Simulated assay, not measured.
Amino acid sequence: MERPVPFPGWTLPGVMTACAVQTLLKAGHLKPSGRIVLAGTGPLLLLLANQLHQFGVKPALVGRTDRLSDSVRAARHLRPGGLVPLVKGLGWLGRLKLAGVKSVTGLENLAAHGTQSVERVSFTVGGKRQTLPCDLLIVHDGIVPAIDIPNAAGLRLQWDGPNASWRPATTPDGLGASTLPPEMSAGPCVLRVTGDARKIGGADAAMAHGRVAAQAILAALDHGAGPSADALRAVGKALSVRPFLDAAFPPGLAQELPDDDTIVCRCEELTAGDLRAKIRSGFRNMDALRGETRCGMGPCQGRSCMVTAARLLQDETRAAGCPPTFRGRPPIRPIPLGAVAKLSGLDPRATIRLTLEDKPENASEDTVDAPAE
């Protein structure tokens, strides 16, 4: 999923993410019109700018948060497997330049302004504040693993500091680790995670690691000897470009925590100031914060706000590491009641076992207060 990025004005109509716009282009055969600004970082931003130009839509600006210095530092991570993506990216940049599309690097402090919809954007480049008229602001700050399914399944997650995101903690063949206590598990964890839900790598890496995971599953069922050397090498080759991309396109829009007036939880319209105030009043873990504020209880189930809430909690409590996520709860996506009513094959005993830890213990008879005389 795209990295959620709260910034002033991000909830205005006319502010969209790059993947949403790309979906409308590909699936809806729709193209935007008016004054279009793209802001953020990552190869997808450059790809989308080229796709828009191919559709006859010339962006007013491509504002990148990454800098030339990032690319220079990233060069030491470049491997032969990364040369093809590098050449492709340089081609996108060249075509945009030939088309006369204005581009800047080092963009900071992005904000969208308007009443009923976005009307202009402001940002800082090289220490100077600039404002541009805008009808559509497209933002993209990189891709992070979608952890909602592993989290709801009770798998252990780990914080990835450089990428400011969580990802499932797995073995090289994708085997996850359960967070459930032994008395609530029937045996060792057998769930495996593969593809971008485990580690961002793209389609080729997902297919290569999928083969490794499949071979490991077959070995666990006494069919085969486990992941082959060729399959493991294919994963390494497919992921060889990742260190370069991570260094060349670090998180930019999400680098700084939002100010108090910026909305963090879109579903409940909670600002960063609302969350900071609750943290300072004593709600110092993620589930307590959610229970008090409803942050993460809306239709997105925390996908848009959870990382920012955790970073705010870490910042306010001066914690050494980022706190764990909200406890995952079904439904992972909103579904109609009729779909739930028609479910079959669900063992109600499993549901009871997995929710016992959330229920208050019954008071024993010897602890019940006697009635006052």
Score class of each variant (00 low, 15 high):
residue 339 A to R: 10
residue 199 K to A: 07
residue 247 A to V: 12
residue 286 M to F: 14
residue 135 D to S: 10
residue 13 P to F: 03
residue 303 R to T: 01
residue 311 R to K: 13
residue 25 L to N: 00
residue 334 P to H: 08
residue 162 P to Q: 02
residue 339 A to Y: 06
residue 98 L to S: 04
residue 317 T to P: 03
residue 330 P to M: 10
residue 33 S to A: 11
residue 204 D to V: 14
residue 28 G to P: 00
residue 123 F to W: 04
residue 219 A to I: 02
residue 315 D to Q: 07
residue 131 T to Q: 09
residue 144 V to W: 01
residue 303 R to P: 00
residue 231 A to I: 14
residue 351 T to P: 00
residue 210 G to F: 09
residue 80 P to T: 04
residue 113 H to S: 15
residue 105 T to W: 03
residue 210 G to S: 13
residue 246 D to L: 14
residue 130 Q to V: 05
residue 66 D to A: 10
residue 35 R to A: 08
residue 256 E to D: 14
residue 334 P to L: 02
residue 255 Q to W: 11
residue 24 L to C: 02
residue 76 R to T: 10
residue 34 G to D: 07
residue 149 I to Q: 11
residue 365 E to S: 14
residue 325 T to I: 03
residue 340 V to F: 05
residue 201 G to D: 03
residue 370 A to T: 03
residue 348 P to I: 05
residue 106 G to Y: 03
residue 341 A to T: 07
residue 354 L to M: 13
residue 22 Q to G: 03
residue 25 L to G: 03
residue 82 G to E: 06
residue 315 D to G: 00
residue 303 R to F: 07
residue 113 H to M: 13
residue 304 S to M: 04
residue 233 R to M: 12
residue 26 K to E: 10
residue 299 P to G: 00
residue 118 V to N: 08
residue 370 A to Q: 01
residue 181 P to T: 06
residue 230 D to Q: 14
residue 116 Q to V: 11
residue 149 I to Y: 08
residue 77 H to N: 09
residue 177 A to H: 00
residue 5 V to D: 00
residue 74 A to K: 07
residue 305 C to K: 04
residue 274 D to N: 15
residue 134 C to L: 13
residue 269 E to Q: 13
residue 245 L to H: 11
residue 325 T to K: 05
residue 176 G to M: 05
residue 190 V to H: 12
residue 344 S to Q: 11
residue 218 L to P: 05
residue 67 R to N: 04
residue 318 R to I: 01
residue 97 K to N: 02
residue 278 K to L: 15
residue 40 G to S: 09
residue 16 M to L: 14
residue 332 I to L: 10
residue 303 R to N: 05
residue 323 P to R: 01
residue 220 A to H: 09
residue 38 L to Q: 13
residue 314 Q to S: 01
residue 107 L to H: 09
residue 79 R to K: 10
residue 61 L to P: 05
residue 290 R to D: 01
residue 243 P to M: 11
residue 255 Q to H: 14
residue 103 S to T: 13
residue 306 M to V: 01
residue 242 R to F: 02
residue 100 G to Q: 02
residue 206 A to C: 15
residue 167 R to C: 10
residue 353 R to G: 04
residue 184 M to E: 13
residue 229 A to K: 15
residue 304 S to C: 08
residue 65 T to L: 13
residue 299 P to W: 07
residue 162 P to G: 04
residue 364 S to F: 10
residue 144 V to L: 08
residue 90 L to W: 12
residue 34 G to Y: 03
residue 312 L to C: 02
residue 312 L to E: 04
residue 218 L to M: 08
residue 236 G to Q: 15
residue 239 L to E: 15
residue 203 A to P: 01
residue 176 G to E: 06
residue 31 K to F: 03
residue 237 K to E: 15
residue 297 M to K: 04
residue 13 P to S: 04
residue 325 T to M: 07
residue 327 R to L: 11
residue 75 A to T: 05
residue 79 R to P: 01
residue 24 L to R: 02
residue 150 P to F: 08
residue 188 P to T: 14
residue 248 A to E: 12
residue 194 T to H: 01
residue 330 P to I: 07
residue 291 G to D: 15
residue 148 D to S: 09
residue 93 L to D: 10
residue 252 G to R: 01
residue 370 A to D: 02
residue 183 E to L: 09
residue 43 P to I: 05
residue 354 L to K: 12
residue 138 I to W: 07
residue 100 G to Y: 05
residue 128 K to T: 12
residue 366 D to L: 14
residue 31 K to M: 06
residue 371 P to D: 03
residue 156 R to C: 00
residue 63 G to Q: 12
residue 91 G to R: 12
residue 170 T to I: 03
residue 59 P to W: 03
residue 354 L to G: 11
